[in-house]
């Protein structure tokens, strides 16, 4: 086994292959924000406690502050910047706007990434289930009722 303090990683981020040289300590969150200027993904707590840094790693939602970039070598990552297609907002993004599901907006990229994954997972059978499976995304502005309304609206778009 080779041990390295610096290494080169290749990640497919929002559909583009990106090769970077990183310190072994670099988290996926810092790689996105500091190396690639993808600052849509937010750093709230940097301890796994808030969900602001939620991205999709190989299609699953994770806290990017708890993933080493080195460990994500070869992975596919989707961030909030990768959701809108051809200039049109993702239905979940539109639902958040339509339902005033934010005030300051700091938690919103994480909430939106979590919602997209939640709908794919199917943990949306009741309001209680939505709230439980969205509990990893805190909102200091307490927009929770509006967020639940946006999630429910986005499910209807998908089903309709």
């Amino acid at each position: 086994m080779e041990f390295r303090q610096h290494l080169t990683v290749v990640l497919r981020i929002n559909g583009l292959d990106r090769q970077m040289r990183v310190d072994a300590r670099t988290t996926l969150l810092d790689l996105l924000r500091e190396h690639l200027a993808l600052t849509g993904t937010k750093k709230g707590c940097n301890f796994g406690e808030c969900g602001a840094c939620t991205v999709h790693l190989n299609g699953r939602r994770v806290n990017s502050c708890l993933v080493l970039a080195a460990s994500a070598d070869g992975a596919e990552v989707t961030t909030i910047e990768g959701l809108a297609a051809a200039g049109k907002l993702h239905p979940v993004q539109q639902a958040f706007i339509d339902h005033d599901a934010f005030q300051c907006g700091f938690c919103t990229p994480g909430q939106v990434m979590s919602t997209v994954a939640l709908i794919r997972e199917g943990h949306t059978r009741s309001e209680a289930e939505i709230r439980e499976w969205m509990s990893g995304n805190l909102c200091r502005c307490s927009s929770y009722p509006q967020i639940v309304a946006a999630v429910e609206a986005a499910i209807r778009v998908k089903e309709g």
Binding site: G48, V62, N63, G136
Partner: peptide, 9 residues
Amino acid sequence: SASAQLRNL
């Protein structure tokens, strides 16, 4: 335990 995101890791 924890949250949906954390349990994916």
